[in-house]
Computed example of a mutant assay.
Amino acid sequence: MALVRNRKAIRHVDYWPGFVDALSTLLLSIMFLLSVFVLAQFLLSQEITGKDAVLNRLNSQINELTQLLSLEQGNKQDLEDTIANLQASLTSAQNEQSRLQSLLSQGAGAGAAAEGKISELSTGLENEKQISARALSQVEILNQQIMALRKQIGALEEALNASETRDKESNTKIADLGKRLNVALAQRVQELNRYRSDFFGRLREILSDRENIRIVGDRFVFQSEVLFPSGTAVLNEAGSEEMKKLAVALIDLQKEIPDEINWVLRVDGHTDNVALSGTGQFKDNWELSSARAISVVKFLIANGVPANRLVAAGFGEFQPLEPGDTPEVRARNRRIELKLTER
């Protein structure tokens, strides 16, 4: 029974306190090791920091030595330049010394030459004095001539003033004559306009029954179909009859217009904008319009109108009465115009 109880007691032994002791010992060991590691790290960092400071000081000293070396090299170069300049100055001084010695040796010979030059200059001075005396006499003569010229200029100024006065009077007269001339010209224009009105009135009476004849501004306009066959410059029978009436009116008008009015009847030929083929009698509308105007003028001359009172001109298609390409517009642009005007 006692043995059984001992076995039970052995089975119930408590291991926990031993385990705790072992764990505590292990923790203390770890903490000790960590403390040693931290201390070692601290000491190592202190040593490294000290080495960095030493290294920085060394680098600073190296930089200072480098700067000192550069300064010394610069000073050396300056000294070398100074020495070179001094050597150049010395060489120049030696050359100048040689030149001065040469001049000094030449000075003895130059003295004699200078004396000769002085003598020559003295002779020249005497000559100049003589020339100056002659010049003074000429200046006196010139002064007298200037006085005479001043008197002449004064006389010319008086004459000029008198001429300006006469010019003013002449300008006044010219202005008055211009006004009179303008009035006379205006009267002539009025007279010519009156005769033009009479001429137009007579033509209206003579040609009032024709639809293809009309007045445009200060011109009588004949449609080309009234006077000419298409594409020709020969007056047809009806056109010849109309031009005979016109010739009679012009001859009667000539008797009434005074001879001092230099009037003319201008005959202008115009065509439409249809180009000619160029293979017929006329190459283009310029020739056709000019030929028709000349044909009318020659017919009037043949019927007693003085040639010096007639002018013929051709304008082709370049002075239309109306713009456009319709048959009606082209018919109105094909025309002969009569204008009584002054030459």
Rank of each mutant, 00 (worst) to 15 (best):
D81I: 09
I118E: 01
D52S: 09
L55M: 09
A162K: 01
T49S: 13
N95I: 14
N59S: 09
F42S: 10
T123E: 00
E72V: 10
E64F: 15
Q106K: 06
N56R: 07
A84E: 06
K76W: 13
L100G: 11
N161Q: 15
S102V: 06
L43F: 11
S98F: 13
T91K: 02
L39T: 03
I83P: 06
I146Y: 07
I48S: 02
Q67Y: 13
N56T: 12
E80H: 10
G109L: 09
R57N: 04
I146Q: 00
Q46P: 12
S92R: 08
K117E: 14
E72Q: 04
E72Y: 07
D78R: 13
Q87S: 12
G74K: 11
D52I: 12
I62T: 08
A113D: 01
G116F: 10
Q152P: 04
L103M: 11
V54E: 07
D78L: 15
L58Q: 11
L104F: 13
Q61C: 06
N63I: 14
S45W: 13
D81H: 08
A53R: 05
T91Q: 01
I141P: 06
E126S: 01
L86N: 04
L79R: 01
Q144R: 13
L55H: 06
Q144Y: 12
E64T: 14
K51G: 12
Q67D: 09
K151R: 11
S122Q: 13
A159K: 07
A40R: 03
E115R: 07
S163N: 10
A93P: 01
E64L: 14
T66Y: 08
T123D: 00
L142A: 05
K117W: 15
T66C: 05
A93R: 05
L136F: 03
R150P: 03
S98P: 08
K129W: 02
A93N: 09
Q144S: 15
K117V: 15
I118A: 04
R134T: 07
G109Y: 15
K76V: 04
T123G: 00
